[in-house]
Every structure is written in structure tokens, then in C-alpha cells.
């Protein structure tokens, strides 16, 4: 079945988008602006782990085809992305007295700065982790599913991170404070919550998750200075589709957007998938339109449900 293979790669791509969209949604609801630098935060995370991995090497051992050094590099990527975001918040955003639109425009400038620094350092060409590419897992091949152990590692890691975030938000003190602040910042403040501290934690968590998403994106494709900015639109589409301000909506939106993106190639071979149609039937839409289709679907949903799937009324 061709369909199964596309669903599998949709699942992998969704995991990467989920990691990006959670952070964007958190920052959107707590710092109250659309952060256009979020995609480039992913790039920063990816390149930091690239440098770390190059410096420490594999460190022996292997989990799912990935050497232990890669996981250390992953942690380094998360840490650097979070650190960069906190520094940006302290140096740039904190002292600003602007509405959310002004902050949005500022974040575009920040995005350019991140990307320019990465490109100056590493050049515009794509690089890749020094990890042996794997063959698809043997026992899945009879089902036409071509998935490597690396892909499995991406999905499992994303699941672990998302579960961790869920536990943090629902059961920890910090999570309760964050939800309170997202709901009503002024009320949270007069209740004695130190909102500026919560905001910093939001940046750490959001940018950290974005950094991990960048690392996995680099593993899934290659590392390019533009990788994050190119993915940003899909992440925004996911967040808006799910409903701004709802982390779980963002997860759902990311899952849908990732699936739509990876299922787009099926449109040109509809006949092979759907019954009752001739096998050669297909729409003339190639896989280069994956992002475009995902985006148009988001706009159509907004027409009928402006608050998104899980969002509250605007």
C-alpha cells in the first residue's frame, strides 16, 4: 500500500512540526505576540547540536542507529536555543513598550539576525550530521513502508518531549502558573505570580522544544540556514489551525498539517489509492505543493471557524 508509507512519513514530519508549534503557541499565549523568529530558533538549535556533535563525536554505543553523542548534542542544541531565546528576551523584548504588532515586526528583525549569524558562520550550503544513513527497516518493507530507525527515534523522542510537557503543564506548579498567566496576565500578577519569571520559563521551554525540533529536522533532511524560516509558515499554519492559545490545539493542528503536507503526493496518484477510479487517475498537483495545500486548508478553516479548531472565541 502506497498510503501506509505516506502516513508513516506524515507521522515523522508531524512530530517535528509539533515540537515547533508547541513553543510558538506557548509564546503566543504568554508573551502575547506572533514570534517570527521561532523558525530561526530551530535553526540555531540544529546548528548548535551540529557543532557539538562534531566536537565530541559518537561516544560509542547506539540507540536506534544513533550514537550516544548525538543525544548529548541534542541536549546541547536544546540548551543553546533556550539560552539564545532568553538572552533575546532580556536584551531586546523586555525593554520594549510596544503592542503585539510592534513585537511581531521586531521578531522579524530578530529572525534575520539569527539567520545571518548562522549563515556567516557555516555558509549557505547544506551540511549534515556525520551519522551513517540507514537502510529502511527490513520487516516493514513487505508493507511498502520505508522507514529507518532514525525516523522511529524522531517520533519516540518527540512523544517523550510532548508527554513531559503535558505533565509539566498539568501537574507542576510552574505549569499551573503558566496556564493562569496565559488566561489572564493581570489577574495572575495580582494573585502573586511573578509573571516576568514565568515569561522567562516560557521562553526556555518554547525555544528548547523548538531547538529539539530543529535537530530532528536536520536529521530528517539536511541543515540549511533557511531550514527554520521555511518551516515557520507550516508551524504558524498548525498553530492557527489548532487555535491560538491552546497548546493541545497546536499539537492537533501540527499533526494535521504534517499529515496533509506528506499526503499531498497522493493527489497525483489518486486512482491507485481510491477504489472505483481508474488507476491512472490523478490531480496534476505535485509534492512541491505540500506547503501550499496545507496553507490553503488553513485559510479555508479560518473562513468558517476563525478561532481555529480548539481555540476560544475571539
Amino acid at each position: 500500500m502506497v498510503l501506509l508509507d505516506h502516513i508513516a512519513s506524515g507521522l515523522i514530519f508531524s512530530s517535528i512540526i509539533i515540537l515547533g508549534s508547541i513553543g510558538l503557541s506557548l509564546v503566543y499565549s504568554i508573551a502575547d505576540f506572533a514570534n517570527f523568529a521561532h523558525g530561526d530558533t530551530m535553526t540555531v538549535g540544529a546548528y548548535s547540536s551540529f557543532v557539538t556533535f562534531g566536537a565530541i563525536g559518537g561516544l560509542g554505543g547506539a540507540v536506534l542507529g544513533l550514537p550516544l553523542g548525538f543525544f548529548v548534542a541534542l541536549l546541547a542544541g536544546i540548551a543553546v536555543a533556550a539560552l539564545v531565546a532568553v538572552i533575546t528576551e532580556k536584551v531586546v523584548y523586555e525593554g520594549m513598550d510596544l503592542d503585539s504588532i510592534g513585537m511581531l515586526i521586531t521578531s522579524i528583525g530578530i529572525a534575520f539576525i539569527y539567520r545571518a549569524v548562522v549563515q556567516m558562520w557555516f555558509g549557505a550550503d547544506a551540511v549534515r550530521y556525520d551519522i551513517q544513513a540507514l537502510r529502511p527497516i527490513e520487516w516493514l518493507l513487505p508493507y511498502d513502508v520505508r522507514v529507518t530507525e532514525h525516523d522511529v527515534a524522531i517520533v519516540i523522542s518527540a512523544a517523550v518531549l510532548v508527554t513531559g510537557l503535558h505533565v509539566l503543564l498539568q501537574y507542576s506548579d510552574l505549569g499551573r502558573k503558566m496556564r493562569a498567566m496565559a488566561d489572564n496576565p493581570d489577574l495572575a500578577r495580582v494573585s502573586g505570580i511573578r509573571t516576568d519569571r514565568i515569561k522567562l520559563w516560557t521562553w526556555v521551554i518554547g525555544a528548547g522544544l523548538a531547538g529539539s525540533g530543529g535537530v530532528f529536522l536536520g536529521l530528517f533532511n539536511l541543515l540549511r540556514p533557511r531550514m527554520g524560516f521555511d518551516l515557520l509558515l507550516l508551524i504558524f499554519a498548525a498553530v492557527i489551525l489548532g487555535g491560538i492559545g491552546s497548546v493541545y490545539g497546536a499539537m492537533l493542528g501540527a499533526f494535521l498539517i504534517g499529515m496533509i503536507h506528506e499526503l499531498t503526493p497522493l493527489l497525483s496518484q489518486l486512482g491507485a489509492v481510491l477504489p472505483y477510479l481508474p488507476d491512472t487517475f490523478g490531480l496534476p498537483i505535485g509534492n512541491q505543493y505540500g506547503s501550499a495545500i496545507a496553507f490553503v486548508i488553513m485559510v479555508i478553516v479560518l473562513l468558517f471557524r476563525p478561532q481555529g479548531i480548539a481555540g476560544e472565541a475571539v
Partner: peptide
């Protein structure tokens, strides 16, 4: 990238 940097710094 220098041009990107200048544009970014100018915006900020």
C-alpha cells in the same frame, strides 16, 4: 548574510 544582518539590526 551581511545584508540580512543589517536589515535585522535596523528593524530591531
Amino acid at each position: 548574510p551581511l545584508r540580512f544582518l543589517m536589515i535585522g539590526v535596523l528593524i530591531v
